Simulated assay, not measured.
Amino acid sequence: MAPKTNCNPLKLASILTYIQASRVAHNIKDLEKHLPSVASINGMQVKDYIQALSDDSKIRVEKIGSGNWYWSFPSEEKQQVEKNLAEAKAAHAKAEAVVADLQAKVSAAQEQQQADAEEEDEGGESREVLGERKAKLQGELAVLRKELAGCGDADPTILEKKREEIGKFKQDVETHSDAIINMEAWMVDVGGDEYMCGKRRELYGDQLDEESCMLKEI
Rank of each mutant, 00 (worst) to 15 (best):
S126K: 08
I50W: 01
E118K: 10
L130N: 03
K4E: 14
I64F: 08
D101N: 13
A13E: 15
G123A: 02
G67L: 09
E120W: 04
I166A: 11
F169C: 08
A88Y: 03
K94S: 11
D55G: 07
G150W: 04
A115T: 04
H26S: 04
I50R: 02
L102K: 03
D121E: 14
E82P: 01
V98W: 06
Y70L: 04
K161Q: 10
Q103H: 12
L12Y: 06
A13D: 14
E164S: 06
K161H: 07
E77L: 11
S126L: 05
D189F: 09
D153W: 01
D48I: 02
A100E: 13
K89V: 10
A91L: 14
I28L: 09
Q79R: 14
L203P: 06
A149M: 10
Q103S: 05
L16K: 01
M1T: 05
S37P: 00
G43C: 07
A90D: 02
M1G: 12
V61S: 03
S40C: 02
A109G: 12
R127W: 03
V98H: 11
P3K: 04
I180L: 05
L215E: 09
L102R: 01
K33Q: 08
E210G: 00
K83A: 08
K33S: 13
K162C: 08
K89F: 11
T157S: 14
A39D: 02
C7Y: 04
S40A: 14
L53A: 00
Q110K: 07
L137K: 03
N8A: 12
M183E: 06
P9C: 14
K58P: 01
E132N: 08
